[in-house]
Amino acid sequence: MTIKQNGFETTNLDFSYDGRAILKDINLKINQGEFVCLLGESGSGKTTLLNLLAGLTKPSEGHVYWKGKEIEKPSAERSVVFQDYTLFPWLTLLQNVTLAIKKTKKLKTSYAKNLAEEYLNLVGLSGSLHKYPFELSGGMRQRGAIARALSVSADALLLDEPFGALDPVNRASLQDLVLELCRGVKDRPITTLFVTHDIREAVYLGSRIIVLGSTPGRIIADIPLDFPVKKNRGEWFRNEKVQQTIATIEDAYHKDILEKLGHIVQGGASI
C-alpha cells in the first residue's frame, strides 16, 4: 500500500459571479492518482469547479491547492479537455500536439514531433497525423485533445464533459481509453477529475464520485467506489453493487431537487 499523496485540495471555497453564488463552501481533497467523477445537473457549478482547479478562474473566497501549493494560474501540469473540441483548427493533429509539447517542455521541434507521434499512436490516431480537425469526426478530435492533454506530462487531467457530444459507440470506446490512460501513462499515475451529468458514465469510470447539488453548487454526496474489474460492459452494469450505487446517487439527486422544489412551494405559499 502506497502512501496517499495530496493532489487537489480546496478549503472553504466560494465562487460567485455577478453577485450570484455559484459554488458555496466546497471542501474537497483529492489524492494523487485518484479518478474522481464530478456529477451534477447543469447549473450546479461543475465546470466552474473544474476551471478553479485548472487555474483558469480565481475563487471569490477560500483557497485551491495543487500538491500543497496554492493554484495561481493555468499550468500544463493540470491539463484540460473541454467538451467543445479545442484543438486549434488551423493546425494538423500532429502540429497541435507538437506545439503543446514544444511550449511546455522546451524541446526541439524534431524531438517534440516524435513524442507527439507517440501520444497520437497511444490514442489510436496514428493514421490521421496530418489531418486537420475539420477533417476528423468528433470522436477523433476528442482523442486528439486527450493526446495533447497527456503529452504535456500532465499529472492531473481535468475533463469537462468530454464525451457529451459523441454517439454511444464512440463514447464507450473513449471511456475505456481514458480509463486505460489514466491508470498511468509510462508508470505515471494521473489524478483525474471527470465532469459529467451522466450517472452511468460516472459510476463506470470513477474510483470516487462527488455529487454537486445546485444553486448554489455544494457537495451533497461523496462516494468512494470499489467495483469488480471492468471486463464486459453489459455484465458489469448488471452487477448488483453497481446498480445499488447508481440508485444511491439517483436518490441524492432527487432529494436535492425535491428540497429545492419544497423551497419554491414554500416561498410561493408565503406570498
Binding site: L56, A76, S79, V80, F82, T86, F88, L99, K103, T104
Partner: peptide, 12 residues
Amino acid sequence: EKYKRNAAIIGI
C-alpha cells in the same frame, strides 16, 4: 474563449 484557455494551459 476555448482558444484562449488552451493557449494558457499549454503555456503560451
